[in-house]
């Protein structure tokens, strides 16, 4: 396998990992929101407002972890 292919492979892996971490941590929600606003031609709120919104929702949905 040549060098370029290895580097490309590592890059793809790193991209995949970053994608996964953004998804799991919920950071990707913001990207999705922006994309949705673009698609629907709406003006998005600021990130600060958006995250407050999510906090407010989290307030009412308890997520219990297990024993």
């Amino acid at each position: 396998m040549n060098r370029a292919a290895v580097i490309a492979g590592v890059r793809a892996k790193a991209r995949g990992l970053r994608w996964y971490l953004r998804q799991v941590s919920g950071e990707a929600k913001w990207d999705e929101y922006l994309a949705r606003c673009r698609a629907e031609g709406r003006d998005p709120m600021t990130r600060r407002e958006f995250e407050r919104h999510r906090d407010a929702h989290r307030e009412e949905s308890a997520r219990s972890s297990c024993c």
Binding site: A12, K13, A14, R15, G16, L17, W19
Partner: peptide, 8 residues
Amino acid sequence: PGGQGAQR
């Protein structure tokens, strides 16, 4: 865009 690596 951006996710082939997560596939492996």
